[in-house]
């Protein structure tokens, strides 16, 4: 469904991605793990067109989308919940969600999306008129994910959805990711919490300083000694 081939990204002189190869098949959950500064967010931002790539190619369903503007990529139903939530602070929950479906004109479709997101996140339904800036961190995270679901994405990119959440909320978010995947959404998940990520993912990639160093079946990777040592905090 998504295939990334030899992707390079520069920030000025900083070479953040050094030829990344990655494949995602339809209806998979793929997780990308790696330490801080490895280039995980850079990879997602480059895929969705926010940061220009300096080499390599990205294909979505066989169509090349390299360096297309983000609004054109989002139209192809690739959506992203960015690192740090990035909600619109002075807009209401409802307006934030409405913007998630900005590219869609069909009113019925939008109504259905609202119902779907509110059933996934009842907390948001109770707060439709509250401005996003006044939501708690966990609620903002729900809003960011909900917003990304509004246009019924085929591929959902999640950048650290559990960041800064209490353990019970983390569990809830992971359960939700699995549920969303069961609704037929393919997912690329970035997580600091590698244990959890590997437990719900089908496959995983390990990124180190801009290069993929390991990849394979999630269950197998979670047994890999090097991975356990570096990312799972046990030996």
């Amino acid at each position: 469904m998504l295939s990334v081939k030899g992707l390079h990204t520069h920030y000025g002189k900083i070479h953040a991605l050094k030829g990344v190869d990655l494949e995602i098949r339809e209806s998979e959950i793929v997780t990308l793990i790696g330490s801080n500064g490895a280039g995980k967010s850079t990879l997602l931002n480059t895929i969705i067109g926010i940061i220009p790539s300096s080499g390599g190619k990205v294909f979505f369903n066989e169509e090349e989308i390299t360096n297309m503007p983000p609004h054109a990529i989002v139209k192809k139903r690739i959506c992203m919940s960015p690192e740090g939530r990035e909600v619109f602070p002075q807009l209401t929950v409802q307006e934030n969600l409405r913007l998630g479906a900005y590219a869609i004109k069909d009113k019925k479709f939008i109504k259905g999306s609202f119902e779907n997101v509110y059933s996934l996140f009842p907390r948001l339904k109770e707060r439709t008129k509250q401005t996003a800036g006044t939501l708690s961190g966990g609620e903002q995270q729900m809003l960011a994910i909900g917003r990304a679901l509004m246009s019924d994405p085929k591929l959902l990119l999640l950048d650290e959805p559990s960041l800064g959440l209490a353990p019970n909320l983390v569990l809830m978010i992971f359960k939700l990711i699995a549920d969303i995947n069961k609704q037929g959404v393919t997912i690329l998940l970035i997580e600091q919490n590698a244990n959890m990520a590997l437990s719900i993912a089908d496959r995983a990639y390990v990124l180190e300083t801009g290069t993929i160093v390991l990849s394979g079946d999630a269950k197998e990777l979670s047994k890999n000694d090097a991975v356990r040592k570096a990312y799972l905090g046990n030996t």
Binding site: H71, E86, Q90, R98
Partner: peptide
């Protein structure tokens, strides 16, 4: 209006506006 909502979105968070599929 819808374009007005997009204007306010760009104003508050341009990066997120891109992610919403808004042609900034």
């Amino acid at each position: 209006t819808s374009i007005g909502l997009a204007m306010r979105a760009v104003e508050q968070n341009t990066k997120a506006a891109h992610l919403m599929g808004i042609n900034v």
